[in-house]
């Protein structure tokens, strides 16, 4: 059996409670259960995580590079969308 016969999975790891799952990479596995186990072995063996999600890569809908300009360009000249015009109150951390 070669790798190419196994579907690809995207792996998300939550590094500790309170944080969200973050994409860490992808792997091949025959099914979801095995993908979870492979993810455990590949991405959390140095205690990087407390929770893992695996998602079939085929379930991800990605934006196309061809649409890059209509998608992202218009945001470039609208600085008023950034919260940079506010004073940060004293004592507020993690902003």
């Amino acid at each position: 059996m070669t790798t190419s016969e196994w579907p690809l999975w995207e792996v998300f790891v939550r590094s500790r409670r309170g944080l969200s799952h973050t994409h860490v990479g992808s792997l091949h596995a025959p099914d979801a259960e095995m993908a979870l186990r492979n993810a455990r072995d590949l991405y959390t063996r140095r205690s990087e995580g407390v929770s893992i999600w695996v998602v079939p890569s085929s379930a991800v809908t990605a934006s196309s590079p061809d649409e890059k300009d209509p998608f992202f360009e218009p945001a470039a000249d609208k600085p008023y969308r950034h919260p940079t015009f506010y004073e940060v109150p004293e004592g507020v951390r993690h902003l």
Binding site: H28, R37, N38, D41, L42
Partner: peptide
């Protein structure tokens, strides 16, 4: 090993 993922699992 037959696949890379399994090689890592067995090595672990």
């Amino acid at each position: 090993a037959p696949v890379l993922e399994e090689e890592v699992a067995l090595a672990n």
